[in-house]
Computed example of a mutant assay.
Amino acid sequence: MSEYHVPVLLEEALEGLAIRPDGTYVDCTFGGGGHSRAILERLGAKGRLIAFDQDEDAARNVPPDERVIFVPQNFRHLARFLRLHGVPEVDGILADLGVSSHQFDEEDRGFSTRSAGDLDMRMDQRQTLTAAQILEQYGEAELHKLFERYGEVTNARTLARKIVEVRKVMPLATIPGFMQAVQGVVKGNPKKYFAQVFQALRIEVNDELGALKVLLEQVPGALVEKGRVAIITFHSLEDRLVKQFFKSGTWEEQEEDTNPYGRQKTASPLEVITRKPVLPSEEEYKRNPRSRSAKLRVAAKK
C-alpha cells in the first residue's frame, strides 16, 4: 500500500468521521487502501466498509476481509450501489479526491508532466475519452474555456490558439510532444504552468467536478442522522464546491441571496464541523510533499 499511495490527512480524517466500531462506512476513493485499512482497524466484527474505486488497479489492494465490499465504480454512483448492497444509510463517508501516487508514477497513465507516455489521463480505463482526443477534437473556444476554468491558466486563449495551429501539422498524442509543441507560449514557471494545464485536461477527461457535485448531492440521503462526511480536496475548484454544499446544501446560493422577493433559502441538511479547512501538519508535508495542497472539510447530517 505504501508504494501505491501515502494516505493524506489520515488521522485528521478518521477523527472527523468519529468512527463507531459497529458502524458502516464508505471510502469513495479506495486507491491504495490506506484510509480504508485505518477505518477497518477501528471497526469491530459488526462494522462494515464499502469501498469505491473506478481504477481497476485499485482492486488489487483490497484486503481479504469479510467486512469489506468493493465496488469497482466511480463514486458518483454511490446511492445506486448502496441500494444494490442493501445498505440504505451509512454512518460515514470519506473521499480523498487526489490523484494517487501510483497513477502519477505509472508512465502509461499519462498523468505526470515527467512521463514520456501518451496523453491518456483516464482514471477509468473503460471510458473512451483521453486527453489526446481533447487536444485533437475540441474547438479553440472549448479549449480556451477548459484551460481558463479548470486550470486557471493565465494565457488560456493563447494556449488554445497555439494547440489548434500545431495540430494541423502534427499530432499531439504524447506528453513530451505536446509540451515541446506549446513551449513557445508558456508563461512563468514552466513546471507550474504545465501542472495547471495537465490539471485542466485531467478534470475534463474524468469529469471530476461533475462527479463531485453528483456525490455531494447524494451525501445527505446516504447518511444516518448525525452521520459524517469527510472530503479531502487538492485544488480550489473542488474545495469551493465542498465548502458551498456543506454550508448551503445547494448550488443556487447566489441566486437566492439576490432574489428581490426575499425568498428564504432552504436550510442545509448538513452541519459544518470544520469551520476552516484542516491542513496537513508541517511534519506530514516533510514526509509527503504531495500533501501540500490538501484540505479536509467535515460535516454531519442534521
Rank of each mutant, 00 (worst) to 15 (best):
T258G: 04
E256I: 11
E256K: 13
P280F: 07
E271M: 06
P280K: 03
E282G: 13
T266S: 12
N259R: 14
E282C: 03
P280C: 11
K276F: 08
G262S: 10
E255F: 09
N259G: 08
G249P: 04
Q254G: 00
V272W: 02
T250W: 09
Q264W: 01
V278N: 04
L279Q: 07
R275E: 04
Q254Y: 11
K276V: 09
K265H: 10
E256N: 12
L270T: 00
E252G: 08
D257V: 15
P269D: 12
K276Y: 08
N259V: 09
S268L: 06
T274K: 05
G249T: 06
E271F: 05
G249M: 01
S268F: 12
V278S: 02
P277E: 09
G262W: 05
S281N: 04
S248M: 06
V278Y: 01
E271A: 09
T250C: 08
D257N: 10
D257Y: 13
S281T: 15
I273G: 02
T250H: 10
K276H: 13
T250V: 02
E282D: 14
K265V: 06
E271K: 12
T274W: 03
V272D: 05
T266P: 06
G249S: 06
S281D: 05
E271C: 06
Q264C: 05
K265A: 14
A267M: 00
K265E: 04
S248Y: 15
P269L: 13
E253Y: 13
E255S: 13
G249L: 05
T258C: 02
K265Q: 12
S281F: 02
